[in-house]
Nucleic acid binder design. Structure first.
Lengths: 142, 142
DNA sequence: TTGTACTGTAATAATATCAGTTACAGTTCA
DNA sequence: TGAACTGTAACTGATATTATTACAGTACAA
């Protein structure tokens, strides 16, 4: 999996943490630990998916529009990283003569698809609010 | 995830399909669609884990030693690809001042760990025999 | 006992993916 | 009108992945 999913989750949690004001791509990049341009790319997807509002121009930036307890990591996974479980390279060749070699690609595809559904089910149960809660729990433990 | 998991599963299924004879790395590479040296590398791990026997020299190769219905994809995942769900790059920095930025790495780590456990649970329920069965089902459907 | 056919393993090369960066047009506010 | 932003694409460098080569070691068979 590439890290856009992580960046998206981190950004949304941060926006949920400062709901009253807009955060610029630079502020988010600082917090996430990456480059502002990368943040803008990720946020662009989240805007198109309806999770954040953006404003260009001076004083602009990003603001969470969805309710933190109504956005799950599953939602984010689907828009940022769906299909990333299956390796890009897959074995077998449908054209070949052997039963195993010719059907393996299809069978493994099915296995990876159901595996990914499992993963999504797991992520569906975790909301942005939950993640923010876990972060606050970290502090309480210190 | 890199594709060694897929290569391992494919190879074991193939060996389960031809249990009476040894398969050379070249025969397996042909069936899987990769280079013999890569097969040997993967099989070396499977040998050390006790799933296959190998024999060097003329007429040598690989043979399945485990029972196809006793080896699960979860077993294979653990030896070939454990930890591959979490992206190599992760956000946040424990040293920083912000609660979100400083704890996110740890929280996401936990989320990815439990997600991977879910994945393993799913893979645990699928055996090499099941995969071979699915391949035979493919043929019946044609 | 020697040649042939294998595995084991490491090193290297080629390729693909990922992350960082730069650049600039477009937008908004003051 | 200038400053502070986003949106997006292009490019660069780093890292991960796969392919390939090479060769030492092992086992069988003539």
């Amino acid at each position: 999996m590439n890290s856009e999913f992580t960046i998206a989750v981190h950004s949304l949690v941060y926006l949920a943490y400062v709901p009253e004001r807009m955060a610029s791509s630079e502020a988010l990049a600082d917090n996430v630990g990456t480059h502002p341009a990368r943040i803008r790319k990720v946020m662009s997807v989240l805007r198109k998916s309806g999770y954040v509002a953006t404003r260009e121009g001076a004083g602009g930036g990003y603001r969470l529009t969805a309710e933190p307890n109504e956005v799950s990591l599953g939602d984010i996974y689907r828009v940022m990283a769906q299909g990333s479980l299956m390796p890009s390279w897959c074995s077998g060749d449908p054209e070949m003569d052997c039963v195993v070699g010719s059907n393996m690609k299809q069978v493994m595809f099915g296995i990876f698809c159901t595996a990914e559904k499992r993963l999504e089910t797991h992520f569906n149960a975790i909301t942005i609010r939950d993640v923010l809660g876990q972060i606050h729990d970290c502090v309480d433990c210190e």
